[in-house]
């Protein structure tokens, strides 16, 4: 009798789990895909997608690390090249690969599958520079000159991913000592530090009522300005300013979570993100470039010129030194120490 009950319960449990097969996907807060794509995946796989947003990418990874004993997700999207070293060292990812498509050259994430990439770079307000008849800065060092005093706003690398990416680019571009010397000069030249991208772009950038015509943003932002303009614009009101040592290439990827419950479904989701349909859609839903080679770019991306070069520190350095760099930056720039 007892055995029978147990058996029945087990069966009931099993049928329940098969009925409600659920794939838990952890993402950063910017994850966004059209509803049809999500529905399509659910129909193909027969599973329900539970998307869990864990905040900014860095915050999300730390949430995964803290819960690794009882993983809260089966697959994670949004870990990028600044975080992959830390993720691998913490052992929260199951080495993941995908047979779908071939990645573009620089889009590679050890242990994870690259889905998209983009560039963090300076954006300028074209109208402001035209009106002031000021030449654009040609090098990072120009930004520390009196002509460009009080013109730049950056995000705090301690609270923002683009802020961190830009700091990393300057370190790779100028070397650690050179970069921090430059940041010190920048601070004395009226650098403004905002908490995050939204604050910088919407309260400090001249395009939106602030007083700073140069902002740290993404290379795709000028295209998004056209896409989300009120009247159809022929050209973007903003432009990329890709200075040497001021461009960071960000690669975002997906991986299975170690100890996750649905490895097969998780793999299916990884392959789904590499599918052509998703690679096309993510361009204008997340404003990143597709990581799979040969996928056509959205027409609006003609307004987002891809920087010719970038400067990233190597993955190992980013894994081991980022925390120290950020803390040094904070002390130098925020604390106002000599």
């Amino acid at each position: 009798m007892f055995k029978k009950t147990v058996l029945l319960l087990a069966l009931a449990g099993a049928s329940l789990t098969t009925l409600a097969a659920e794939l838990r996907v952890m993402t950063h807060s910017s994850f966004s895909l059209p509803k049809e794509r999500i529905a399509e995946f659910e129909k193909q796989s027969g599973a329900k997608l539970a998307i869990i947003k864990g905040g900014d990418a860095g915050e999300m990874l730390n949430k995964l690390i803290l819960t690794r004993a009882n993983p809260v997700a089966d697959v994670v999207y949004g870990i990028d090249n600044t975080l992959i070293g830390k993720a691998n060292a913490a052992g929260v990812l199951e080495p993941t690969s995908s047979k779908v498509g071939r990645s573009v050259a620089a889009a590679n994430l050890p242990g994870a599958v690259a889905i998209d990439y983009g560039y963090v770079t300076l954006n300028i307000d074209k109208a402001w520079f035209a009106k002031q008849k000021l030449a654009l800065p040609a090098t990072l060092d120009d930004l520390a000159k009196p002509a460009y005093k009080d013109l730049l706003v950056v995000e705090n690398p301690a609270t923002s991913s683009p802020g961190l990416a830009f700091l990393l680019a300057t370190i790779a571009g100028k070397g650690e000592e050179g970069a921090f010397q430059w940041w010190g000069k920048l601070r004395d030249n009226g650098l403004k530090v905002a908490k995050g991208w939204s604050e910088a772009y919407y309260t400090d950038f001249t395009r939106n009522g602030g007083a700073r015509p140069i902002v740290v943003s993404y290379a795709t932002s000028p295209a998004a300005e056209v896409f989300y303009s009120k009247e159809k614009l022929a050209e973007s009101p903003t432009a990329n300013l890709a200075l040497k040592g001021g461009v960071f290439m960000q690669v975002e990827g997906v991986a299975r979570v170690k100890g996750g419950q649905q490895p097969a479904l998780a793999q299916q989701f990884v392959d789904f993100l590499r599918s052509e349909a998703v690679q096309k859609d993510l361009q204008t839903s997340m404003w990143m470039y597709p990581a799979v080679a040969g996928v056509a770019l959205a027409p609006v991306f003609k307004h987002a010129e891809q920087p010719a070069s970038f400067s990233n520190p190597d993955l190992k350095a980013m894994q081991h030194k980022t925390a120290a760099w950020v803390s040094r930056w904070t002390r130098l720039v925020i604390k106002n120490a000599p």
Partner: peptide, 18 residues
């Protein structure tokens, strides 16, 4: 601006980022 940040901002960055 960030120069006027409170201690909570430090705690946030210690937990969420580091």
């Amino acid at each position: 601006g960030q120069r006027y940040a409170t201690v909570e901002v430090e705690i946030y960055s210690l937990v969420a980022y580091e």
